[in-house]
Amino acid sequence: MDAPAIRTRRLSKRYGRTTALDALDLEVPAGEVFGFLGPNGAGKSTTIRLLLGLIRPSTGWASIFGHDASDVARAHRLLGHVPADVALWPRLTGAEILELLASTGPGTDRRYRDELVERFALDVSKPGRTYSTGNRQKVALVAAFATRAPLLILDEPTSGLDPLMEREFRRAVVEARGRGQAVFLSSHQLTEVEAVCDRVGILRGGRLVEVAAVARLRRLHRTEVEATFTGPAPDLSHLPGVQDLRRPDDGRLRFFLTGPPVEVLRALAAADVSGVRMRDPTLEEVFLDYYGDAGPPGPAR
């Protein structure tokens, strides 16, 4: 398909005086794993409901592979969805639920589905009413990953999963990308997004504040540097990009660096350096640079 998996233009949703999503411009190409980050209340769930055609935008529009997202019958033939809170038919067994979803969805690879059942350690003989939160999540994940829909929309998909099952989830995402499927992963699990996503979008108070590759997003923020010396430490305070320079009494320099490191590395190379340690920020630290400790400003849903 030539059209992107997801495209939005000025997509907005208001509830009275509350703006849940404000002028979202976003494009996710086919075959990309896109992480959609934000804490509770940032507008992630509103975005997903708009993409699924479950609610109407106040202004703007969204499309799925070129089809208006509000045309639910057509758009849903092109996507699989895992909601944040999975509800199952209580009297049907897991096997019956998976078969029902396969018969009503956009096509399922049953052999791959059976493999996923084993990998996720899912007992499909039990009725839905007996499943824990984690097992309900597994049913939804198996059904979604087994579908051959070109787009998967996953909303907090690993809630209730243990670390071993989270590893299987990440493996399944990589396999979906290898088949050319696009994956839209809405999450607040930063390590999860960091592990599998090609690009990340950060939503704050209903507005998109950044879209970038994970590696580039880290480079936009400061790198922690620690250098030790056998002789006198150089004066780096005047160099561009050096912040929070500290000089402990142990022959070390500690500072943060933003932007190109050329000038700093040149100054360090001219001194008697015995060791240098540089640490890139994690995605969580990048995220907190946007939010601080207070969370997103203003109300959103």
Rank of each mutant, 00 (worst) to 15 (best):
D2R: 13
R9M: 09
R10S: 15
S12Y: 08
S12A: 13
K13T: 03
K13P: 00
R14C: 11
Y15W: 13
G16T: 05
T19F: 00
A20G: 01
A23N: 05
V28Y: 01
V33R: 03
F34T: 03
F34D: 01
G35M: 01
F36V: 05
G38S: 03
N40C: 11
A42S: 15
A42V: 03
S45L: 03
S45Q: 04
T47A: 12
I48K: 04
R49Q: 12
L52T: 04
P57L: 04
D68P: 05
S70M: 13
V72L: 09
V72C: 09
H76C: 04
R77S: 11
L79C: 05
V82L: 02
P83T: 04
A87G: 12
P90Q: 08
R91N: 12
T93L: 07
I97V: 13
L100S: 11
S103R: 15
G107C: 12
D109F: 06
R110F: 02
R110W: 06
R111A: 14
E118M: 09
R119T: 01
P127S: 10
R129C: 11
T130S: 15
T130M: 14
A144S: 13
A144I: 01
F145P: 05
R148D: 11
S159I: 14
L161T: 02
D162P: 06
M165V: 11
M165D: 04
R167W: 12
R167Y: 09
E168H: 09
V173G: 00
G178C: 04
G180F: 08
G180A: 10
F184L: 12
Q189D: 13
T191M: 14
T191C: 11
V193N: 02
E194Q: 14
A195E: 08
R199Y: 12
V200F: 03
V200S: 02
G206L: 00
R207D: 03
L208R: 04
L208A: 05
L208D: 07
V209M: 06
V209C: 09
V214F: 06
R216S: 15
E224H: 14
V225I: 12
E226A: 13
E226D: 11
F229C: 07
T230A: 15
G231C: 03
P232C: 08
L236Y: 04
S237N: 12
P240C: 10
G241T: 04
G251W: 04
R252G: 10
L257Y: 01
E263G: 05
V264F: 00
R266I: 08
A267R: 04
A267M: 03
L268S: 03
L268A: 07
A271C: 05
S274R: 15
R277W: 08
R279T: 14
T282N: 10
T282H: 07
V286E: 07
F287R: 01
D289W: 09
D289E: 14
D289N: 12
Y291E: 09
G295A: 12
P296W: 05
P297Y: 02
P299R: 12
A300R: 01
R301E: 15
